[in-house]
Design a protein around this nucleic acid. Structure first.
Length: 241
DNA sequence: GCGACAG
DNA sequence: ATCTTGTCGC
């Protein structure tokens, strides 16, 4: 698929990262409603890391699912050296290079991308799901497994029922939801990435939950895929020595 | 010094 | 994210 060129990553300092986040946050659009009926396919995105010759290496995999049949339409991935360290609030800068590289390999255009991480639920509304949307030009949704505490605001635990949620409100604004995707399992933290509203994000995410995981199927599959790919690359590395 | 900290 | 064993439950 075609990728927007909005900026490169030759900037490696937090103040530059912050300036870029402030610039992009003004372009976020969270009013669009997207119904499950209008959805054809949905992509899940995740990364895994390991060390190789003292360097950090990562693999990003995208799994595209047909929303109706729940069948896998396409799988792509990218591998490469990771040059940016993880800093809370700046995850996108670490993961985007491989995300973009993987997206370029897609032959289908997913209607929506689901990310392992936050979107609007972020210090500056610029989680990886939101930031990636500017490159992908597609609606994105963020699904984080642990809570990112913003302005000392804790989340309210939702009831232990499938689909139950509590809005995460900070300074009077709804950032996202603590969402119980499965009964008896810890909630996930849902937020819009971009080009979609929170309620649609919720409906789409819940429609992709099965008994396998608390994560939407495409994200879960991408998660499994990155682990399998890491194992594959590490074993090939050993064979090469 | 201590706690916080998406992945 | 990753390092790791057993263990409880469907």
């Amino acid at each position: 698929m075609k990728i927007n060129h909005i900026h490169d990553f030759n900037l490696h300092h937090e103040d530059a990262f912050l300036a870029l986040q402030m610039e992009l946050k003004s372009q976020i659009q969270l009013t669009k409603t997207i119904s499950n009926n209008s959805l054809q396919n949905c992509a899940g995105v995740d990364l895994a890391y390991w060390e190789e010759d003292g360097e950090s290496v990562g693999v990003c995999s995208m799994v595209v699912l047909d929303v109706n049949s729940k069948n896998i339409i396409e799988k792509v991935h990218s591998v490469g050296k990771i040059n940016v360290p993880y800093v809370p609030g700046f995850l996108a800068f670490r993961e985007l290079p491989l995300i973009i590289e993987a997206a370029k390999k897609l032959t289908v255009d997913p209607d929506v991308f689901l990310f392992d991480g936050n979107g609007y639920l972020h210090y500056h509304h610029m989680g990886v799901a939101t930031h990636a949307s500017f490159f992908l030009n597609k609606p994105t949704i963020g699904i984080a497994k642990t809570y990112l505490r913003i302005k000392q605001t804790d989340f309210e635990m939702p009831d232990d029922e499938v689909g139950a949620y509590t809005d995460i409100v900070i300074d009077g604004e709804v950032y996202g939801r603590a969402l119980r995707t499965r009964q008896g399992v810890k909630p996930v933290f849902l937020s819009s990435g971009n080009f979609i509203d929170l309620e649609s994000s919720y409906q789409i995410a819940m429609n992709l939950i099965n008994q396998e995981s608390r994560l939407p199927i495409p994200v879960r599959l991408a998660d499994l895929e990155t682990h399998a790919l890491r194992k594959y690359y590490q074993e090939n590395k050993k064979l090469a020595e």
